[in-house]
Nucleic acid binder design. Structure first.
Lengths: 252, 252
DNA sequence: CGCAAATTTGAGAGCATTCAACTCCTGTGG
DNA sequence: CCACAGGAGTTGAATGCTCTCAAATTTGCG
């Protein structure tokens, strides 16, 4: 991996960071904040396609995304790869490793990405002293559980259209939280990666985007997307898997 | 909900509990164990079909399953229900609520079930003092993330046969950890609930179980199941979604 | 400018669903 | 004791959504 730059070179980085509301330091005091900052290490940016860590690596650190974006990928015993999430500035990755002290997914940069590295044992120690930090850590872990379960609902009960709409809306709402446009953004992942994430074929993604555009829901130009009709997108996202506006029955 | 029985009436329950290796007290000392025990409340058993808590309820407590089994269910905005997990003795439920202080799934008993209730704020406090407890809590949260992500892989990349096989093997391995038979057990959930959980139709579950039996993989009699060929079940569970032993391509 | 990768588009095939009928099991009431 | 209602589960047939295969087209980049 790339060389670690001592964090002292940055003046009170967490305190000044525009992402602190989303990240670990949320809700902790000035002095505790400084103690957290001493833990944090900064890396030279990670190049597109390079990994933060690999599935099977021992847990050393948690990473916070500063700029750019990453995907986390799990490969099953049979070699099938599943993208379990995309992560954007302010989000943390590596939580899956706490259970067994080993990462069970790889995290790969989708574009040039800068991250903060936080040694986990030090973070664990500090969280013992700082209740606010401990709660925020738990909140972030819990939020990941929530998100995964929303995803289970999506994959288990929704058809391709609803999945695509939900995906676009999820990106939108996450970008809004970072002060970006809710209706116009750049996709840092390929069609194939979206397909993998949503449990669909790449060709299906292509067709869905085309159909959404025809229907006036969105505009697509390569990886540039504009959401034209948020309300209707929400309707589509809430649809059952039959795509006709009625919920497909799957249980007795 | 049912009346709470003061836990003092039970002699050192966590310490004597056969599930302590799986549960919260794992890896903490004698004196800390006693402090944990003082937190724990015991309920009268929860009847089949009754709920521990409902989606939308504020977070009050985490629950540990002592005997019986439960399902957790999330309902989407459109009313579609997704079972996000089944839980057995020694497992904890309620972690999803930490993020927003509100449960985003309901937990319902599949059979008469006894549980331990642990007030979350007290647990949070105590975990600040007891590093071992804090780590175990984090491990349990992290394990849930891992499991959900395994499930994402299953729903995203695997066909019906692989899902069914993986489901049976998952039950098997969890029962083994509790000293039960790995190859012979009772299903506490209906076909419809399995179907919902696996993102399939009830009829498909029925057909799969029949086919597995024909193929000599298992024996089914109502809700009694025996796994006859663990190795081959593992092969089936690792198969891609085409069911032919080759991985279906879903990404470029 | 030209190759390689990513994306789009078209056509046919397959797995799982939906619809529907039937069996089995259980509990209830006459 | 038996008829009956209701739920759970099974089985069969047909439809369809999404996949796979294939080829054209565009984009990215050296």
């Amino acid at each position: 991996m790339t060389a670690v730059i001592p964090f002292g070179e940055l003046k009170r980085a967490c305190g000044n960071c525009s992402l602190r509301e989303l990240c670990l330091p949320y809700g902790i005091g000035e002095s505790d904040l400084r103690r957290l900052e001493q833990l944090v290490q900064r890396h030279a940016p990670v190049a597109r396609g390079k990994q933060l860590f690999l599935q099977g690596d021992p847990l050393r650190s948690i990473f916070a995304i500063r700029t750019g974006s990453v995907k986390s990928v799990t490969v099953g015993e049979d070699g099938a790869e599943q993208i379990t999430g995309f992560h954007f500035p302010g989000e943390l990755v590596g939580f899956d490793a706490i259970a067994a002290d080993v990462h069970d997914c790889s995290v790969v940069a989708l574009e040039d990405t800068s991250v903060c590295e936080i040694p986990f044992d030090r973070l664990d120690e500090l969280s013992g002293c700082v209740p606010g930090l401990r709660r925020q850590l738990m909140r972030l872990l819990s939020r990941e559980i929530q998100q995964d379960q929303q995803m289970l609902l999506l994959l288990g009960k929704k058809g391709s259209e609803a999945r695509m709409a939900a995906f676009l809306l999820s990106l939108s709402s996450r970008f809004v939280g970072r002060g970006l446009s809710a209706s116009r953004f750049h996709l840092s992942m390929s069609r194939g990666e979206i397909a993998n994430y949503l449990g669909l074929a790449m060709e299906t993604i292509s067709r869905l985007l085309a159909r959404f555009q025809q229907d006036g829901l969105i505009t697509v130009d390569g990886r540039e997307v504009a959401l034209l009709d948020l309300p209707r997108l929400h309707v589509v996202a809430d649809m059952g898997s039959d795509g006709g506006g009625f919920t497909r029955r799957r249980e007795g």
